[in-house]
Design a protein around this nucleic acid. Sequence first.
DNA 1: AAAAATTACTTGTAAATACAAGTTGAATGA
DNA 2: TCATTCAACTTGTATTTACAAGTAATTTTT
Lengths: 238, 238
Amino acid sequence: MQQKLVIPQHRKVYEILRSHITDGVFKEGDLLPSENELCTVHKVARPTIRKALDRLANEGYIVRHQGKGSIVKGVPKGVGILSMTGTTSAIGEDNLKTHIIIKPEIRNWNEAFTFPLSQLELESGCIYMERLRLVNSKPVFYDITMIPNINLSRFTSRNFENKSLFDVLRKYYHVEVRGGEQKLLAIVADERLKDYFKVGSGHPVLQLNRKIETSRPGFYIYSQVFCNTDEYALYGSF
Amino acid sequence: MQQKLVIPQHRKVYEILRSHITDGVFKEGDLLPSENELCTVHKVARPTIRKALDRLANEGYIVRHQGKGSIVKGVPKGVGILSMTGTTSAIGEDNLKTHIIIKPEIRNWNEAFTFPLSQLELESGCIYMERLRLVNSKPVFYDITMIPNINLSRFTSRNFENKSLFDVLRKYYHVEVRGGEQKLLAIVADERLKDYFKVGSGHPVLQLNRKIETSRPGFYIYSQVFCNTDEYALYGSF
DNA sequence: AAAAATTACTTGTAAATACAAGTTGAATGA
DNA sequence: TCATTCAACTTGTATTTACAAGTAATTTTT
């Protein structure tokens, strides 16, 4: 089966306007050309233009005001760790340092935190690693990552110091992250976390259990992240 | 200024179909009546029906297939509280009971948790309420909600027991939630939380500070939610 | 000069019409 | 019987037309 090769007009207009916003041709606060102007420019009828604008408004690129016009709101703002895949993409590389606690090694697994595993995943074994992440030299994240050992040759011999795991997967294994699910809870630091985060007894810690979908069907990445939110609260937008 | 009293047809149709899905009249997997059938039933033209269906599809209630029809997908539940606006939409009405701790009342405010306030918001005062949410008869959420007192006539006299705040805002005030931002952290239960959640000293609690955007420009809802994640972890997909 | 009305825009809603394109099952043919 | 064709659906795209309603600046009136 072929790709749909005819791209509808309203989609073309959407793509054009969208790129004009992301590229800065239209900046935040700007008034978009009126619907009728856009009609003549793109040589389509108003409902077609409106369909494109509907989508832009829906995605947060613009806000429309009856009687005034459509005002550019800019690119929908950055998503924090709660809707992102890795720590690096949320915090940024500059302030983030990584200590490898346990280098990637092949293990058996029985379960991935609270997520059930498929037969194939169980049989393949997992690549296990533990990392401590420092934000501005302070330990904030401690994460355990488990990846099914499927088609990842020489993975355990790669170096992950100060590198994004997901960049490696994308670059060398063509595995792209698509989304995922996560469970959040608050716990009390155990001995290990007290040691890593250098905190006292009874210290609250935020825990995330995540199952991350990839572009490879049936290939999931499991990770468990512990956060010390004393100084850095987790941020997310939706 | 008056409320907008004329509700557009496409909106009415949307509300009807949506409630039919949430109430189980249409169940998951069901085939919705065809667009033309819906036209005759609701006595409107097809573009009007399509606009209602567009929104339902966009919000994940239905999936449309060219040549086949629109298939009901159910209440978009995949998204938990982390990407949703209220507790009700994440947990579902059935298992959720609400105790009003402080009924909506008008107050002054100096700050909204960690979020800065605009001049207008400060001058308008806020509607303040506190609620305890029970999931399967166990206290799990305790939330403080602050809403700017702008154009919300008779709001404080409404009843919010076991009702979704956001449904009320949508239905009676045409305020729709667009998105928002939130900060998450883990804390130790204070005396108040220990009392509400019936937990002992040193109990970890998950705290969310949220600023929620609405369809009204400049109108934000602020809420602070405390969760006892002992039995129910917060769930989210991205 | 200040208030009110007008006018010329803007977006919002709604209908009627037409055809394209995907799906399905029944009728038709070999 | 089996495969093909066809007809009758479905949703998708697009135009044209019309009017409602909000906004803002201009003009007129007071």
